[in-house]
Simulated assay, not measured.
Amino acid sequence: MDLDRLRSSCLSFPGAYEDYPFGPEVAVFRVRVPTAPPRPGKIFALVPVDRAPSSISLKCDPALAVQLRAAHPGITGAWHLDKKHWNGVRLDGDLPAGTVRDMIEDSYDLVVASLPAAARAALGWAPGAPEGS
Results as ranks from 00 to 15, higher is better:
Arg5Thr: 12
Ser8Tyr: 00
Ser8Gly: 10
Leu11Ala: 02
Leu11Thr: 08
Phe13Met: 08
Gly15Cys: 08
Ala16Leu: 11
Ala16Met: 09
Tyr20Gly: 03
Pro21Glu: 15
Glu25Phe: 13
Val28Glu: 01
Arg32Asn: 15
Val33Tyr: 08
Arg39His: 10
Pro40Cys: 01
Gly41Asp: 01
Gly41Gln: 02
Gly41Phe: 02
Lys42Glu: 14
Ile43Asp: 00
Phe44Gln: 03
Phe44Met: 04
Ala45Thr: 04
Leu46Ser: 01
Val47Ile: 09
Val49Tyr: 07
Val49Gly: 09
Asp50Pro: 05
Ile56Glu: 08
Ser57Asp: 04
Ser57Ala: 15
Leu58Tyr: 00
Lys59Ser: 05
Cys60Ala: 09
Ala63Gly: 08
Leu64Phe: 03
Ala65Ser: 10
Ala65Thr: 05
Val66Pro: 03
Gln67His: 10
Gln67Cys: 03
Leu68Asn: 04
Arg69Val: 11
His72Asn: 07
Thr76Ile: 10
Ala78Thr: 06
Trp79Lys: 08
Trp79Ser: 14
Leu81Asn: 11
Leu81Val: 05
Asp82Phe: 00
Lys83Ile: 03
Gly88Arg: 10
Arg90Gly: 09
Gly93Met: 01
Asp94Glu: 15
Pro96Ala: 13
Gly98Ser: 13
Val100Cys: 08
Arg101Val: 02
Asp102Trp: 06
Tyr108Phe: 08
Val111Glu: 01
Val111Tyr: 00
Arg120Ala: 07
Arg120Met: 12
Gly124Leu: 01
Trp125Asp: 03
Ala126Leu: 10
Pro127Gly: 02
Gly132Cys: 05
Ser133Phe: 14
Ser133Thr: 14
